[in-house]
Simulated scan of single mutants.
Amino acid sequence: MKTALVVDDSRVVRMVARRLLERQSFVVSEAQNGQEALTACYDAMPDMILLDWNMPVMNGLEFLKSLRASPGGTTPKVIFCTTMNDIDHITQALSLGADEYIMKPFDADILNEKLEVVGLIQELSE
């Protein structure tokens, strides 16, 4: 069974993302910030991480740097999910190890497309 970690300081975003990922048969856990997410990854590395940029305690970029430097930290597919949509932010996230990038707000179609791109789900038929 595939596992996902949703990292966002917004409870609503975590709830929406959880529902969408569970529809794709992911077992989902949540974290409110990068530090909680790092602890969760040390306990059990997920298959994918949906990651917000702006969070208290540890932001998404700091988390991504720490994750990728950790044992097993290159394994999860990381999809940044944020309102930061300029090319500099996207380039920075991808250069630090993010696999994909989506803008908020997002829907099931957008998320599923990115999950297909990173190889976590098969192409969905209409």
Rank of each mutant, 00 (worst) to 15 (best):
M1K: 09
K2S: 13
T3H: 11
A4S: 02
A4H: 00
A4V: 13
L5W: 05
L5Y: 02
V6A: 11
V6C: 11
V6Q: 06
V7C: 00
V7F: 05
D8I: 05
S10A: 10
R11M: 11
R11I: 13
R14V: 09
V16W: 09
L20D: 12
L20P: 01
R23E: 11
R23Y: 10
Q24A: 11
S25T: 00
V27D: 08
V27M: 10
S29G: 14
A31W: 01
Q32W: 14
N33H: 15
Q35M: 15
E36T: 13
T39E: 14
A40Y: 00
A40W: 01
D43L: 14
D43S: 14
D43W: 15
D43H: 09
A44Y: 04
M45T: 10
M45C: 06
M45I: 13
D47M: 07
L51A: 10
D52Q: 07
D52G: 09
D52V: 01
M55C: 10
P56N: 13
V57S: 00
V57G: 10
M58Y: 04
M58E: 03
N59P: 02
G60V: 02
R68H: 04
R68I: 09
A69K: 14
S70K: 12
P71G: 09
P71I: 09
G73S: 02
T75F: 03
P76R: 05
I79H: 08
C81G: 04
D86Y: 07
D86F: 11
D86Q: 10
I87K: 14
D88A: 15
I90F: 07
S95M: 14
A98N: 00
Y101G: 00
Y101I: 00
Y101T: 13
M103A: 14
K104S: 12
P105H: 07
D107T: 01
A108D: 12
A108K: 02
D109K: 05
L111T: 08
E113N: 08
L115S: 05
E116L: 10
E116C: 11
V117E: 07
V118A: 07
V118G: 01
V118N: 04
V118E: 04
G119F: 06
G119N: 12
L120M: 07
Q122P: 04
Q122K: 05
E123S: 06
E123A: 07
E123G: 00
L124M: 07
L124V: 15
L124A: 09
S125P: 00
